[in-house]
């Protein structure tokens, strides 16, 4: 029964899980910074300027447009919250929310499990592992549109399709994958997990290097099984990494677009339509910029709430 006690100790000592400690006061700042308080701002200026022009201004403009019926040439008409009402009462948006949530939850969970498993398998210093990690990481650096096109080929819904020929060898299939409303959403999710898993792996690998090896040895001496070591040493030490992984995956899941757009375009029968594909088709295929902006603002709010929620949950957990 000594293991839990040790793991708690580990939490305090080894992992930076608690609230951020006060910055070390001992480090002296370079002399030129002390006298001129404006200099840091000057260094920040390029970044701030870029962010203002390309992020904050479009964000504010998007919010403003969401309150208008947008007609660039004839002049916009103020409609108040009508656009928001349109979004929230539209049955297509409602089903898109459902699909988005299923995809976000499924991809986040799947990506976490796959990423964690990959990280545990590929942790280490050997050169062969370095090569393997690079190979596994490839989906992340490949353009999503390319990933989508390749998976469309892999998913080809006849005996001749790549995945179906594999399934055929073990006597299963052929499966329709993207071609049926029953399986399309799950097929899109699998592609998402395939991309997200290796991405999470890297973050978790970084977290794993921070785990004190002595704890494993001590636990082994005390007779803890692999499962117990995983549960009581590895996972608690990984909490900060997992918080990042969860937050990033959830945001990524909510704003999923490219995979769906390339794989199915939202079909068949609207079964894979998600929030962003709906926004895209309203904004750019129907030119209904006002409603599309309202939907985007709602997505922003949902993302912010979710991020804050995850942050709050992990902090509280860490504090307890």
């Amino acid at each position: 029964m000594t293991v839990p006690a040790r793991s708690r100790a580990a939490e305090g000592a080894g992992a930076p899980a608690g609230p951020p400690a006060a910055p070390a006061g001992g480090r002296a700042r370079p002399a030129f910074l002390r006298g001129r308080s404006w200099l840091p701002w000057l260094f920040l200026a390029p970044g701030l300027l870029l962010a203002t022009v390309f992020k904050f201004y479009p964000m504010v403009e998007g919010f403003r447009l969401s309150l208008f019926e947008v007609q660039p040439f004839l002049g916009n008409i103020w409609v108040g919250l009508d656009n928001y009402a349109t979004v929230l009462t539209d049955p297509r948006f409602q089903s898109a929310i459902g699909h988005t949530v299923i995809l976000a939850v499924g991809q986040t969970a799947g990506g976490l499990i796959v990423g964690f498993a990959l990280a545990l398998l590929l942790e280490g210093q050997a050169r062969s592992l370095w090569f393997l990690r690079t190979a596994v990481f490839l989906p992340v650096v490949t353009a999503l549109a390319v990933v989508g096109e390749i998976w469309r080929l892999l998913y080809f819904p006849t005996e001749g399709g790549f995945l179906n020929s594999l399934l055929g060898a073990v006597g299963v299939g052929p499966m329709p994958f993207l071609d049926s409303p029953d399986s399309a959403l799950w097929s899109v999710m699998a592609v998402g997990i395939w991309v997200l898993g290796p991405y999470n792996m890297v973050i978790i690998l970084a977290g794993l290097t921070g785990v004190d090896r002595n704890l494993y040895e001590a636990a082994a001496v005390d007779g803890a099984s692999i499962g117990q070591r995983l549960l009581h040493i590895t996972l608690p030490a990984l909490r900060p990494a997992l918080a990042i992984v969860l937050t990033l995956s959830a945001i990524r899941g909510l704003r999923i677009f490219t995979e769906v757009y390339v794989l199915t375009g939202g079909g068949p029968s609207g079964s894979t339509e998600v929030w962003m594909t709906r926004v895209f088709s309203l904004g750019f295929e129907r030119n209904d910029i006002g409603v599309a902006s309202a939907a985007s603002v709602l997505l922003l709010i949902a993302t912010m709430l979710l991020t804050l929620g995850v942050q709050y949950a992990t902090r509280r957990k860490a504090a307890s």
Binding site: E149, R152, F156, P157, T158, G161, L178, D179, A184, L263, T264, G265, G267, P268, S269
Partner: peptide, 11 residues
């Protein structure tokens, strides 16, 4: 052709 329900002219 298979996959017609999600096919555009380009794919």
């Amino acid at each position: 052709q298979p996959g017609a329900l999600t096919a555009t002219t380009s794919n």
